[in-house]
């Protein structure tokens, strides 16, 4: 099956017909709702917060954010602001009379809020769309950089973002995650149902500063499916030393260093140091 991302730009793909089809499908509603709850559990919000929803569509996630804890929304009810590039999707959200504020905006152009505005951000099934704008004026790299740069600035210190997305392949997954790290985020990549056709990829992002909670190690502690992480603010890690980079010895040494610094590392196994798919 071809990816919609490969056929049309998002504002044309999500036209009136598609937006209605999307929002009324009970199968889609259930999947998007499950992923929103998963993302919320990763955000661990303890009290009502100001949240940005990127690619909010018809507001399926937003409706969950507006709920109280009794109805399953931790820390709720939250106040949210949604951005979407499709006027038709936003039209459906308006008809549903969602509580959040809606913006017709292209996340690839940046995030127009002053620094430190949001406690958290969420994005469900949207940011893969940033990867396929290859026009004479713009490139995926430019769009990703403006998006993550703007997102990073608009979150408060210690804030978090969780972006579930559908990368086309490993290269694209890596490109997205690297763009987030380059913007200054601490980043972890979480895979649910890895290797199945229901696989879901969550990019978990933290902004340094504030309380310890902002540290990525706090977010992913105890999760064994998080592959790679970078500390917030730690741009490209310093490399070097006498051990061959990438060798088992090098990895074990790195792990030891990271454990000493309190980072979460995967337990060493007989596979440690073998060639495997690159995650970042």
């Amino acid at each position: 099956m071809s990816r919609p991302e490969d056929t049309l730009p998002p504002d044309l793909f999500y036209n009136d017909t598609e937006s209605r089809k999307y929002t009324t499908s009970s199968r889609i509603q259930r999947i998007q709702s499950d992923m929103t709850h998963r993302a919320l559990s990763l955000l661990s919000l303890a009290s009502p917060s100001l949240i940005l929803d990127i690619g909010c569509g018809s507001g399926l996630s937003g409706e969950i954010l507006s709920q109280t804890p009794q109805y399953g929304t931790p820390g709720g009810p939250h106040v949210w602001i949604g951005l979407d590039i499709s006027a038709s999707m936003l039209g459906v959200a308006l008809e549903k009379d969602v509580d959040g504020d809606l913006f017709l905006a292209d996340a690839g152009q940046g995030v127009p809020f002053r620094p430190g505005t949001f406690d958290a951000a969420i994005s469900i099934s949207a940011i893969q769309w940033l990867c396929n704008a290859e026009t004479s004026e713009d490139s995926p790299a430019g769009r990703l950089s403006r998006f993550f740069g703007g997102l990073y600035a608009s979150l408060r210190r210690g804030g978090r973002a969780v972006c579930q997305f559908y990368p086309k392949n490993e290269t694209q997954k890596k490109m997205v995650a690297q763009a987030a790290i380059k913007a200054g985020f601490g980043a972890g990549l979480l895979e649910d149902d890895e290797g199945t056709k229901n696989a879901k990829t969550y990019l978990v992002l933290t902004v340094g500063g504030g309380d310890l909670d902002g540290d990525i190690t706090g977010v992913v502690r105890g999760m064994d499916s998080v592959h790679v992480m970078a500390r917030p603010g730690a741009k490209a890690a310093k490399r070097g030393g006498d051990i061959v980079k990438g060798s088992r010895g090098w990895i074990l040494k790195k792990k030891e260093q990271m454990e000493r610094k309190g980072k979460v590392v995967k337990p060493s196994s007989k596979y440690t140091g073998r060639k495997r798919r690159v995650q970042f």
Partner: peptide, 14 residues
Amino acid sequence: MEGVPNFLLPGHLV
């Protein structure tokens, strides 16, 4: 319009 601000920018202003 209908409470929704339009923040789409023409390419040259991005």
